[in-house]
C-alpha cells in the first residue's frame, strides 16, 4: 500500500549510559497503514515507542509527524496526534470506563479553569459533547454496556480494549499499540485483530508491537524486525516471514540446533527439576 508518510522516524538512536538500546532505526508509516514491529525480548521495541511518544528524547535522530518534528513531551505529542497504549495496562483504576475515555478527550476540550469553576452553558455543552463522543468510542470497541463499571473491575480483555478506546479519544492520526494481545486467548486475539482493522477504516494509521508473529503477519501491511536495537529486516509480511535472518534471530534456530540446546538445558537442570517435583509432592500431601 502506498501513500504519504504520516509518521517518520529518521536514524533514531537511544543510548542509556553505555548501553545502546537503539541505533539508527528508521521507520516510515504511511496513511492508512498497519505496521507491525516485532523482535525478541529486549530488542528495544518499547524503547522505540517511548522515543516516538516523547517519553524519551532520542539521543540522535528525529521523529516527524506529517513533516513536523514531534516535541519530546508526551502531552504535546498526544496533542499533535500520536496516541498510545501501554504494555502493562495503565488505566485509571478507580474511574469508570466512561470517565477513563472522557479523560482521553482532555486535550480536545476547550474548557478553561473559569468554565470548570462556574459550570456555565458552554461547560455543559462541552461536557455533553465529550461524553457523547466517549460513549460512541466505547460502543466502537464493544464496551458500551459496561461504561458505568469501574475500570479496575473489568475483565482483562475489556481493560485492553478500554485502553484503546481511551487512546482513540485523543483523536489521533497515529495509534501506537504496545502488545495489545498479550495474555489473550485466541478468540480475544481475533476480536482485537478485527478491532484494529476497524480502527484503520476510520483513517487512523496503526503501529503494533507484538510477540505473536502469527497475529502480526495476518494483521499488518508492513512488518519491521528489530533485533538488539537495530532494524534487521523490513517489508511485507511474506518477505519478512521468508527471511532466514529473521527466522534465526527471532523465530529461533533451525530445528536440529534447538534440539541440541534443549537436551543440554535438560541435562543441566535435571537435578533442579527433581527437587521441584519433590516439593510438589509434599505440597500435595499437606492438602
Amino acid at each position: 500500500m502506498t501513500g504519504t508518510p504520516v509518521l517518520a522516524a529518521r536514524d533514531v538512536s537511544m543510548v542509556f549510559g553505555g548501553l545502546t538500546a537503539l541505533s539508527e532505526v528508521n521507520l516510515t508509516l504511511d496513511e492508512g497503514q498497519i505496521l507491525g514491529l516485532i523482535g525478541p525480548n529486549g530488542a528495544g521495541k518499547t524503547t522505540f515507542f517511548n522515543c516516538l511518544t516523547g517519553l524519551y528524547t532520542p539521543t540522535r535522530g528525529t521523529v516527524t509527524l506529517r513533516g513536523t518534528r514531534l516535541p519530546s513531551d508526551p502531552a504535546a505529542v498526544t496533542v499533535a496526534g500520536v496516541a498510545r497504549t501501554f504494555q502493562n495496562i495503565r488505566l485509571f483504576p478507580s474511574m469508570t470506563a466512561l470517565e477513563n475515555v472522557v479523560v482521553g478527550r482532555h486535550s480536545r476540550m476547550k474548557q478553561g479553569p473559569l468554565a470548570s469553576l462556574f459550570h456555565g452553558p458552554a461547560y455543559r455543552r462541552g461536557e455533553q459533547a465529550a461524553r457523547d463522543r466517549s460513549l460512541e468510542l466505547l460502543e466502537f470497541v464493544g464496551l458500551g454496556r459496561v461504561h458505568d463499571e469501574l475500570s479496575r473491575n473489568l475483565p482483562y480483555g475489556d481493560q485492553r480494549r478500554l485502553e484503546i478506546a481511551r487512546a482513540l479519544a485523543t483523536d489521533p492520526s497515529v495509534l501506537l499499540l504496545d502488545e495489545p494481545t498479550a495474555g489473550m486467548n485466541p478468540q480475544e486475539t481475533e476480536a482485537t485483530r478485527q478491532l484494529i482493522f476497524a480502527i484503520r477504516e476510520t483513517g487512523v494509521a496503526v503501529v503494533v508491537i507484538e510477540h505473536d508473529t502469527k497475529f502480526i503477519f495476518s494483521l499488518c501491511d508492513h512488518v519491521s524486525v528489530l533485533v538488539q536495537g537495530k532494524l534487521l529486516v523490513e517489508g511485507t509480511p511474506d518477505v519478512v516471514r521468508g527471511d532466514p535472518r529473521v527466522i534465526e534471530a527471532y523465530l529461533g534456530k533451525p530445528p536440529d540446533e534447538v534440539e541440541a540446546e534443549v537436551r543440554h538445558y535438560a541435562d543441566e537442570t535435571a537435578d533442579h527439576t527433581q527437587v521441584i517435583e519433590l516439593d510438589g509432592g509434599s505440597e500435595g500431601d499437606k492438602r
Binding site: 508526551p74 495503565r90 488505566l91 485509571f92 470548570s116 459550570h119
Partner: peptide
C-alpha cells in the same frame, strides 16, 4: 464540587491514579 466534576478535576484525578498515563492522554501535568 464544580472543579471535581470538570476537565481540570478529571485531570487531577488522572494524575493521582497514574501520572505517566495522564501525560499520555495529553494532560499537561
Amino acid at each position: 464540587a464544580n472543579l471535581k466534576d470538570s476537565r481540570i478535576g478529571r485531570a487531577w484525578i488522572a494524575i493521582r491514579e497514574d501520572e505517566d498515563a495522564a501525560r499520555a492522554m495529553g494532560i499537561k501535568t
